[in-house]
């Protein structure tokens, strides 16, 4: 039996009936057609589906939409106007932090959260913090470089996510 939920997605108020078994990821992708949130494993390991739930990164594939009634969700699409995310994206572009692009939305969400919490993170810290986002293309070197560069720029501009 479907359950009615109301939540905020990228600033918009959404009210929908969902099957209890529907994951947040499928809700975003199939109901709202927000397809930046990718599914790479559907069991919470690869990190491609990472989105912000109430201000903190979460795996959309193992969050049930029904349980997020009242929550505030933000996906990569919702960061289009975000200044810090703009800097991070540009850093990924400059430092070659992506290849096929499939892991990229999850990487960006995790990277932004990392920079917000640990703007001074060194290579080891960045690698540890990003260990829950798998990338099969880059070998992570470009990603680490991108995050370091973005963190440096944001801090020199006195901006934090």
């Amino acid at each position: 039996m479907k359950v009615t939920i109301s939540l905020t997605v990228n600033g918009a108020q959404i009210r929908r009936d969902v099957e209890p078994r529907t994951s947040l990821a499928d809700f975003l992708r199939e109901e709202l057609r927000l397809t930046a949130t990718h599914l790479g494993c559907e069991h919470g390991v690869c990190g491609a589906c990472t989105v912000m739930v109430d201000g903190a990164p979460a795996r959309a594939c193992i969050a049930l939409a029904v349980s997020l009634d009242g929550a505030e969700i933000r996906t990569v699409e919702g960061f289009a106007e975000d200044a810090a995310m703009g800097v991070i994206k540009e850093a990924f572009h400059q430092e070659h932090g992506l290849q096929c692009g499939f892991c990229t939305p999850g990487m960006l969400i995790s990277a932004r959260d990392l920079i917000a919490r640990h703007p001074e993170a060194d290579d080891v810290g960045i690698r540890r913090a990003m260990s829950g986002n798998l990338c099969r293309c880059t070998g992570y070197q470009g990603i680490v470089r991108s995050i370091k560069s973005a963190a440096r720029q944001l801090s020199s501009q006195g901006k934090q996510p």
């Binding site: 572009h93 400059q94 990229t104």
Partner: peptide, 21 residues
């Protein structure tokens, strides 16, 4: 030069087969 294809991926606008309906 930096990659032409980056923009759509960074904006979450890549279109993979699972995105097609």
């Amino acid at each position: 030069p930096r990659r032409n294809e980056d923009r759509r991926f960074l904006d979450g606008k890549g279109e993979y087969v699972a995105d097609i309906r």
